[in-house]
């Protein structure tokens, strides 16, 4: 009887095991490989077994690598600017377009199109639009009698050029999530606010935004995580230049492995990025957990009366 019970208890786990093991291997093997590689002095021509184990030297070198810190700084600056701009524009658009107008569904689809284009294509598109002589921006500026702008060839402008492209592509993401959150808001609370004397702006500040906050925070963290990993668009548009002005971390990792052929060193960089993203992810989970706990606490209190 006891044996049967035990078997019964373990059966579900046994049935789940194959999938679980494959999943673990698929996840852990590459990550473990990368962590292990970060302790090696390893060039692409070598088999991983032939590489020399150098302990923490890659990390120590990173600590003293001014170029790494510069690109880390560029990444932080890039992520900060794009996420702030995208949040403001995305939420602003959602506030404007959250109403019943004829043809609104078509307009919404058009708004989210940029997100559906492959990043490589976005990079190419913007590179052509930014082209110093035949690009649409400079041609237009010239037609209107302004000086042309060195969009991608000046280290100051290039950074903003990359930001504009990213904002163009990813604002829709925030827009659709904010719009969904807004349409889920309790209508009667907004009507009550109207009767209480709130104008449009006061409704946004006092009711809409605070109620959307949980969704907005998750959206922000998702975008932040994504912004730290951005690669293709920048690679195509500027390849990190001029100088190191647009060399974001993912691009530096790519070039360290590809051009400088230092696999161990780039693995160490990847690990730093991974830790950073992990922190952000954990922050997101913690925030979710807090929200859930608060909700369940409320439910419990209501049941008690």
């Amino acid at each position: 009887m006891d044996v049967v019970k035990k078997i019964n208890k373990f059966t579900p786990y046994m049935l789940l095991a194959p999938a679980g093991i494959i999943l673990l291997l698929a996840l852990l093997y590459p990550i473990g490989y990368m962590v292990y590689a970060s302790f090696l002095d390893w060039s692409p021509s070598q088999h991983i077994g032939q590489a020399e184990f150098i302990g923490l030297r890659n990390y120590i070198n990173l600590w003293n690598d001014a170029a790494f810190f510069e690109s880390f700084g560029v990444t932080l600056k890039f992520a900060f600017f794009v996420v702030v701009l995208e949040m403001i524009i995305g939420v602003g658009l959602a506030l404007l377009l959250d109403r019943e107008i004829r043809g609104m569904s078509v307009l919404r689809v058009i708004f989210i199109l940029p997100m559906m284009i492959a990043p490589i294509v976005v990079g190419l598109m913007w590179r052509y639009m930014y082209h110093p002589t035949v690009g649409v921006f400079n041609r237009t500026l010239k037609e209107w009698g302004f000086e042309s702008i060195p969009w991608l060839s000046d280290s100051g402008w290039a950074f903003y050029g990359v930001i504009i492209a990213d904002v163009w592509q990813w604002t829709p993401f925030i827009f659709i999530l904010a719009l969904a959150a807004m349409q889920g808001l309790p209508r009667s609370a907004l009507e009550a606010a109207e009767l209480d004397g709130a104008g449009e702006w006061q409704k946004i500040v006092h009711i809409k935004l605070p109620l959307m906050l949980p969704v907005l925070i998750i959206t922000l963290l998702l975008r932040l995580i994504d912004a730290f990993k951005v690669l293709e668009v920048v690679l195509i548009m500027t390849n990190g230049g001029p100088g190191l002005s647009t060399e974001i971390l993912a691009l530096r990792i790519f070039r360290t492995a590809q051009e400088f052929q230092e696999l161990g060193y780039s693995a160490a960089m990847s690990n730093i990025l991974l830790i950073l993203l992990m922190l952000l992810t954990i922050a997101m989970f913690v925030y979710n957990k807090i929200q859930e706990n608060r909700a369940s606490k409320m439910c419990a209190m209501i049941e008690k009366g």
Binding site: S188, A189, A193, E194, L195, G197, A198, I207, L213
Partner: peptide, 20 residues
């Protein structure tokens, strides 16, 4: 007139309290 200018107060079926 806007709702706020009508000198009315209203109680809604689902209470319509501000949850936050």
């Amino acid at each position: 007139l806007e709702p706020k200018s009508r000198d009315l107060a209203m109680v809604f079926q689902d209470y319509a309290l501000y949850p936050h």
